[in-house]
């Protein structure tokens, strides 16, 4: 099963390598990873998406907790939470598809952040299903480039699963 794990870590050099090494050294896969500073610049927050059975996920969270530089580990999957990911999609539609691309962007509450004679760059934010849906719909129009931030997640306040 897929799990979204949120980590508070010390903002030091080498920390990312310790975390990625923990995964690679045990043959676990990181499906997505995003990192950024928190309000406290000495602490970074990471969101890691990985998958495995219960035993593997238990090992992953325990091993993460064991790393000296990791302050806190939360398996978001165990909580009610909100997940978001942002993608930038550069589409190069044929002349007759241009209107359809713009319409799709609007339906998905995307924004056109750049355009050229041949391309539109669309920014879309949402959960995994929404991103998948717009990508599927835009594919036939000719996706030229595709960038994604990786997932971030936050627990919902006061709601227990």
């Amino acid at each position: 099963m897929r799990h979204t794990i949120s980590l508070l870590v010390e903002n030091k050099f080498g920390v990312l390598s310790r975390i990625s090494g923990l995964f690679s050294g045990r043959g676990y896969n990181i499906e997505s990873l995003s990192v950024g500073e928190t309000i406290d610049p000495q602490i970074s927050i990471m969101t890691i998406v990985t998958s495995g059975d219960d035993q593997i996920i238990e090992q992953i969270t325990k091993q993460l907790n064991k790393l000296i530089d990791v302050i806190k580990v939360v398996d978001m999957t165990e909580l009610e939470h909100v997940e978001r990911e942002m993608v930038l999609i550069k589409v190069a539609p044929k002349q007759e598809d241009k209107a359809e691309v713009l319409r799709l962007a609007e339906i998905f509450r995307g924004r056109v952040v750049d355009s050229s004679q041949r391309t539109y760059t669309i920014e879309v934010t949402g959960d995994e299903k929404k991103i998948e849906a717009i990508v599927e719909l835009l594919k036939p129009m000719g996706i030229k480039e595709f960038m994604r931030t990786g997932k971030i997640a936050i627990a919902r306040e006061g709601i227990k699963k």
Partner: peptide
């Protein structure tokens, strides 16, 4: 050596 020894130390420093 910090990179090399990372998986086999409890912790390491530069």
């Amino acid at each position: 050596i910090v990179g090399i020894s990372r998986p086999c130390t409890k912790y390491n420093y530069l």
